[in-house]
Design a protein around this nucleic acid. Sequence first.
DNA 1: ACATATGACGTAAGCGCTTACATGGTCTGG
DNA 2: CCAGACCATGTAAGCGCTTACGTCATATGT
Lengths: 336, 336
Amino acid sequence: MSNNRQPATIYQVAAQAGVSIATVSRALNGSDTVAESTRKRVLIAVKELKFRPSRLGQSLAEGRHAANGIVFPDLSGPYYAEVVLGYEEVAAELGSSVLILSTHGRPDPAGKVMDLARRVDGMVVISRTVADTVIAQVTEIGIPVVLLARPAVGSCDTLNADNVDSAHDLVGHLVEHGYERFGFLGDPAGSPDVHARYEAFRAALRAAGRRSPRAPLRCDFDVESGRRAAARALRRPARPEVLVCGNDETALGALEAAKELDLSVPEDVVITGWDDVMAARYAGLTTVRQPMRELGATAARWLQERIAGNAGPVRRETLATQLIVRSSCGVHDHKT
Amino acid sequence: MSNNRQPATIYQVAAQAGVSIATVSRALNGSDTVAESTRKRVLIAVKELKFRPSRLGQSLAEGRHAANGIVFPDLSGPYYAEVVLGYEEVAAELGSSVLILSTHGRPDPAGKVMDLARRVDGMVVISRTVADTVIAQVTEIGIPVVLLARPAVGSCDTLNADNVDSAHDLVGHLVEHGYERFGFLGDPAGSPDVHARYEAFRAALRAAGRRSPRAPLRCDFDVESGRRAAARALRRPARPEVLVCGNDETALGALEAAKELDLSVPEDVVITGWDDVMAARYAGLTTVRQPMRELGATAARWLQERIAGNAGPVRRETLATQLIVRSSCGVHDHKT
DNA sequence: ACATATGACGTAAGCGCTTACATGGTCTGG
DNA sequence: CCAGACCATGTAAGCGCTTACGTCATATGT
């Protein structure tokens, strides 16, 4: 009946139903012993007043946010978007809201992360979005942190996609083709994943008895940056036969550079990526597929367990990846 | 000195600094008149105890969450991811945390949205993720809502990307090529944008004096769905010369279907998309570019204003889009 | 019929902050 | 030398819930 502008509180419901607020709370939260007739009266009052319990009041009383956060560099590429989606799906199932925080190109990521820490019961941190010290500070507050695609810090659970096996598969495949001169495109210092990929790539090359590659051709993660770096490399007198790129965006840029220089792929130069984003398929890019959703989903589950108080041993796992061979690394009988 | 497990409260800081909690609050929130010496003492205590004010306590007292939400169908395609990113960036600048909610394929989206409404000061709802009645319920609670890529509801601010002008441009371009038999791929009932695109497409065709297309070839938004629907259409005896697709994913599927049927694009069949996702570029797809980030950013600003209490007139705006001509719609002199 | 167990509900103490108002001390001017 | 003004700070009342504990009436057993 009453149509106030402000949302109703539990007190108004209690008054309307002629009971105490404790009873309202009990009636609403199912549990406890409430007479059926009373519960009905309460529910009617709730409906009439359009009452919805304030999350703040609840959280404060319960001592938990029922929310957790995820920190990522960016959402532009399909990679993080998929991870976030996998994460959000599981978190939602588990009854937690999800707060997001993107750090790339933003001022004061550390401060933002500390801020986030005050609003959540736990959080997932992807890649090297913030310094180790920040992670430490967050866990010190008592907020569980799960690390994703990032080297371990302290005693946080850490989840990664495999870079080593796939690098070996990739190099093995390329070596079968008979290539000799390899180059690596991407900045190992820019992301833990790229770093791991570069190291694994070198190791695999060594294991295959190939010459060590030059220093990596450093560039950012975007297409344009990859294009420029690749163009530089491909103009050199002794240009590499193969350009292994740290991620797909970079590789797509390299494909463009090759085209501009009238080099055909894979005849004149072979190019491979990493991640298997959607565009990779249309560009015919040989790459490594990551279980992106699975990464997010697993992180969400681990986090939930820590929040629930699971004090088990620290988890460090690596999810398997898959080499996807397309046309950019040489001619095959495959289609697609 | 003291190293407790639980995070410190304002009481402990007050005790340690020898002042009342009111003074601590004042010292921390800058404003009020606090003697410099006192402030210093407080800050020292804060540092020693590693105090961080509880967001819950603050929010409850302030009566605001300092957070807002964004509801979208999915994060798989680049489209929503970009919108969300644009949104998050501005929201962060404005000091709000961002809660996300993805609805596609999830149980009880309406309930989830109502839940979200209890945790935020306002929210953005993209596309037809929930029914109009749910939007109405949310606004009734007093939570401002900004609608994105969705028909207006009640007196919510509503932001859209243009579909009409771009449809005219697109059809105009295709008509110049001399094509006659047009088909539309996508489900107008599936999304407000696709609906608007279909209608505008038909209108443009009529305006150009072309035959009306058949009923749309209904399919979902993903590549696979587009492939199947396109395959069906392209096998018909009088197959369309042009397949205008409601979004890029669908169009990419159509490209695949054409390939499988050994039809070459654009010679045998012309295919166009909508959105200009990254893969579109590599697939040579003619499409319509949307200002995705700008959509998100603008929505965030509008929302903030409403939350701040701006009671101005309802806003309804349409952002301009741009026709991107590539190879899939015919041969041009262009590159890329 | 009486002590006791049981069920249904109310009371009140938090949860951790912000802020209106009250208090007391120090200055200022006449 | 004192009233009034002004600072710096304390007091306490919320904000909207949950929940341990207390209370009262009715049902149970002998």
